[in-house]
């Protein structure tokens, strides 16, 4: 009702050219407006309308518990409905495990992985830590003395910190991880010298790195990223690659033809100018991986994530 009212006011304010085209889609972002999943869903909406895949695309937000609330609702509502899509990502994998969610990712149909972002470890410019080697030395000497600021417990940032410790031979349970709720609180803690290091996606820190207020110690990518002036973890001798990816799912109970049709539509989105432009402005990488390959990769990641969350002590 309210949405309708706002939409009506909007339509009154700005005359939108409305044309009815082929398929209608409803995309669920299992998070509040403004976050990465919401932005992904809205970018898909925009690409679908501009390329004429669909004239009527709606985005709905079902926030809560790392996407698991939206996932449960989606699995139920979208059963056998080929017009419904769900945006999600790696954070969901961890959230399902830590919340012991009743509805898991096997309850929906994986369509494709879309984008990815790598994690970076940063320190304030004035920090005594100059390289990943310095960090490793300090971490080995006294794991508790290194405080890591990042997003919520069990999320990608926490998992990366745990994996980093494990790879350099420190018990992940001893990682002194300080969870901050999203939206820059972790960044403020790093800038204010409240913690030793910050760990998050590069986008969170980009402006401060460019302004010289923060220094990147390392990137979780497999090879160097042109825009980030820092070595990868692997280059620095820490054999670790982590990608915070986002993807799209459809409901359960679809036929092979329906799944193929949805995949073809999503592929058109990914190849559209509008989508490419979005990736460029937001600094996301295209990590297109459709169908069964995505499914296999997902299964591997669920196993690995489950193992590290047990090591950290968040999952029994």
């Amino acid at each position: 009702m309210k949405q309708f009212l706002a939409a009506a006011m909007l339509a009154g304010a700005i005359a939108l050219p409305m044309t009815a085209l082929a398929a209608d889609y409803t995309i669920m972002a299992p998070a509040g407006p403004g976050g990465g999943w919401d932005q992904t869903a809205r970018a898909m909406q925009d690409a679908m309308t501009t390329t004429g895949i669909s004239g009527n695309v709606q985005v709905i937000n079902v926030p809560g518990a790392g996407g698991t609330i939206g996932l449960a609702q989606f699995a139920q509502e979208a059963n056998g409905d080929p017009t419904r899509l769900l945006v999600g990502g790696y954070v969901m994998v961890g959230a399902i495990l830590t919340n012991n969610a009743p509805v898991k990712l096997d309850a929906v149909t994986p369509i494709a992985r879309l984008t990815g972002e790598y994690e970076v470890i940063v320190v304030p410019a004035a920090s005594e830590l100059l390289s990943l080697a310095d960090l490793t030395t300090k971490l080995k000497a006294d794991p508790g003395a290194v405080s890591w600021a990042g997003g919520s417990a069990g999320g990608t940032d926490h998992i990366t910190a745990g994996l980093f410790a494990k790879t350099v031979g420190v018990d992940p349970k001893l990682v002194n991880y300080i969870a901050f709720s999203g939206g820059g609180e972790a960044l403020a803690a790093v800038l204010g010298n409240q913690v030793t290091v910050g760990i998050s996606g590069y986008g969170e820190f980009q402006a401060q790195v460019e302004a010289g207020a923060l220094r990147v110690l390392g990137v979780s990518a497999p090879e160097r990223i042109s825009v980030i002036d820092a070595p990868t973890f692997t280059e620095a001798g820490v054999e670790l690659v982590v990608q915070n990816w986002r993807g799209v799912w459809a409901g359960p109970g679809l036929s092979a033809e329906q799944t193929a049709a949805i995949t073809a539509d999503v592929e058109k989105v990914v190849n559209s100018e509008s989508w490419k432009q979005t990736l460029a402005t937001k600094g996301w990488n295209n990590t297109w991986l459709p169908g069964d390959a995505f499914k296999a990769q997902l299964a591997k990641e669920i196993d690995a994530t489950s193992a590290i969350l047990k090591d950290i002590g968040l999952v029994q």
């Binding site: 509040g32 407006p33 403004g34 976050g35 932005q39 999203g182 939206g183 820059g184 609180e185 960044l187 403020a188 800038l191 980009q206 402006a207 401060q208 460019e210 302004a211 207020a213 460029a280 402005t281 937001k282």
Partner: peptide, 25 residues
């Protein structure tokens, strides 16, 4: 700083980024 401290500010930040503008120092 490019720090959004409320939900509305977070979406305004997304709005900035949509134009390739990076709020910050």
């Amino acid at each position: 700083l490019g720090l959004p401290t409320s939900a509305t500010a977070a979406i305004m930040l997304a709005g900035f980024q949509q134009y390739g503008l990076q709020p910050g120092p």
